[in-house]
Design a protein around this nucleic acid. Structure first.
Lengths: 151, 151
DNA sequence: CTTTTTTCCTATTAGTTTCGTAGGAATTAT
DNA sequence: ATAATTCCTACGAAACTAATAGGAAAAAAG
């Protein structure tokens, strides 16, 4: 039940674009440095984001990437789903209407459905704009002076 | 973000013990047949449940397994955690107080914390007794006549 | 005391996924 | 022409998943 590094990195990448992307495109190299993530790995991740039309690229010198929409128009869930696939905690919930084959199936299925809703409730509640706003708050509060975490 | 088969099977195993375990211990062979799970695989899973003192065993003919406590005293979360390890969606949340190293860390961490709480909120809300009660309801309603699901 | 049934223990394995690294091609601003 | 940047594909090591397998140990039944 872990979010993969790819999913977490994609979110940080998109947040970086939100925070540092303005008129000019942002170079992946900069993002890699700021986020301390390998450039080559980020290339793979952003390639998926581009194919999903979440970002657009400009090639050549002074090139880079921009968001395609407003930060408020990307939910965390959309980004994670694009990179990680369905977030449903069991495969059974991914397609529609898989009827059960054992007495207690309905039982565990009901549980997984509730869990699924709880997860969706969080990841679809927040957008990049929310994360960016939190980021602003964090800076004001003088947070983040210590080190040691891998997130 | 998937629950592994081991976690799902462990839950079904414990529910089976709840539903079919009375005075007598339940043989793993029976559970394997009812749940359509390989006996050998269930042995590995129940061995963890036993080491965690969630079930006790009786060896030899007429042997089997029993729950150690009342069904209401096992939450789904406890069972899943014993088998799968921490359910936290990112490793950072597993230990206490991992301070951040980047501006937006606090931001994504806040998100992961909310997600973690949402997940815990569901899995720690229900006990085996709840699942057993749902199972009863399902039977009454004549549910589960179709086939095709792998859960 | 032998047989049978059951749990218990440990090893193996095929396949998949994760988490990258690597090399170079294509594009384009300067 | 050069250099910076994205783009594309392949490779690989390590870990994890989802089992299968063989047999040892315990104990009830005959």
């Amino acid at each position: 039940m872990k979010i993969s590094t790819k999913g977490r990195y994609a979110l940080r990448l998109m947040l970086d674009l939100t925070l540092y992307g303005g008129q000019k495109p942002v170079r992946l190299k900069e993002i890699a440095a700021r986020q301390e993530i390998s450039l080559k790995y980020l290339e793979q991740i952003i390639s998926v984001l581009q194919k999903g039309r979440y970002v657009k690229s400009i090639r050549g010198p002074q090139g880079g990437y921009c968001l395609m929409r407003e930060p408020k128009d990307y939910t965390v869930g959309q980004i994670l789903r694009l990179i990680e696939g369905e977030l449903a905690p069991v495969a059974c919930l991914e397609e529609a209407a898989n009827p059960c084959s054992r007495q207690e199936l309905c039982v565990t299925l009901r549980l997984w459905k509730e869990l699924d809703l709880a997860i969706k409730g969080v990841v679809d509640k927040y957008t990049l704009a929310d994360l960016a706003a939190w980021s602003g708050e964090a800076l004001e509060k003088g947070c983040c002076e210590q080190r040691g975490c891998e997130q």
